[in-house]
Design a protein around this nucleic acid. Structure first.
Lengths: 146, 146
DNA sequence: GTTTTTGCAAACCATTTGCAGGGTC
DNA sequence: GACCCTGCAAATGGTTTGCAAAAAC
């Protein structure tokens, strides 16, 4: 499941970012993951694999990838963050995150415009930004035989 | 605009929580606010008014009120939190927060079921929880003469 | 009188930053 | 060679916690 590794690196190249070993490692670690993950998860993965990399570097890489639109940063309840990989397309979209295994799927085509308009009419607010995060159970975790 | 003060205290009574002076103060501080606010905001208000109250107490009160459904806790981008007052009714709802003045309005009747079903059909996820926060500009901040 | 709360200060902990050395283009 | 990145360690800052005194019931 390391198929998005290349994508992440491509994104790096797209910007004026340097293709460094640490960034490659972070990309690889992300590619090896199935769903959403935290910075701490990556640090754990790294040390488990014997990959030496600085905490700050991981945070900076995550930040960079997010800026490039390759990752989306979710706000966890506790106040810390999780990340999910976004597909190559940078259209507006949201994610469903599995509360059981952490896997995530993209939801393309956020058909929320009508709803936003309705809200706009009801409240008078000019709605221009929204945060939508869906949580549930993924198909894999629903079936008894995972 | 202190009309929800009583509501907050009522909520306290509803649970098995004690009606203490500090909690009353927090309720009053909240009631005196127009929109969303942070724990730091309340601390500032308190010291401005010469009300002595411990930081921890404010956080604990905010937490208590949130548990009672009297407040909703929003996840700010930075990782810290803001709170908005919820009406007496505890129906499912969301908020629109003004990015300019912080005021917030409730959106009752989250008509998201059809959308959730659509997502469910498309991804296979059994969606059972969602976080929706809308941001925009409130009517008051839209008009030139505030 | 028992149980809950408060307040203070210290602890937490994810995230950020300063800075010198090293890698990339 | 110039500029970007890394890594370490120290700093940050919102939030939480331990604990003894004080208040509520």
């Amino acid at each position: 499941m390391g198929s998005q590794g290349p994508t992440l690196l491509d994104d790096l190249a797209r910007g004026s970012y340097r293709l460094t070993a640490p960034r490659r490692q972070v990309a690889a670690l992300i590619g090896a993951r199935a769903g959403s993950f935290t910075a701490a998860d990556l640090m754990a993965d790294a040390s488990r694999r014997g990959v030496r990399i600085g905490r700050a570097t991981v945070f900076r890489a995550l930040d960079t990838f997010s800026e490039l639109g390759a990752l989306e940063r979710l706000e966890l309840d506790g106040g810390d963050h999780a990340y999910v990989v976004c597909g190559p397309r940078s259209e507006h979209h949201h994610h469903v995150v599995c509360r059981s295994c952490g896997r995530a799927s993209e939801i393309i085509g956020c058909d929320l415009e009508p709803w936003a308009l309705q809200v706009q009419r009801a409240t008078g607010y000019e709605v221009d930004r929204h945060r939508i995060e869906l949580y549930g159970i993924c198909p894999r975790c629903q079936s008894p035989r995972a």
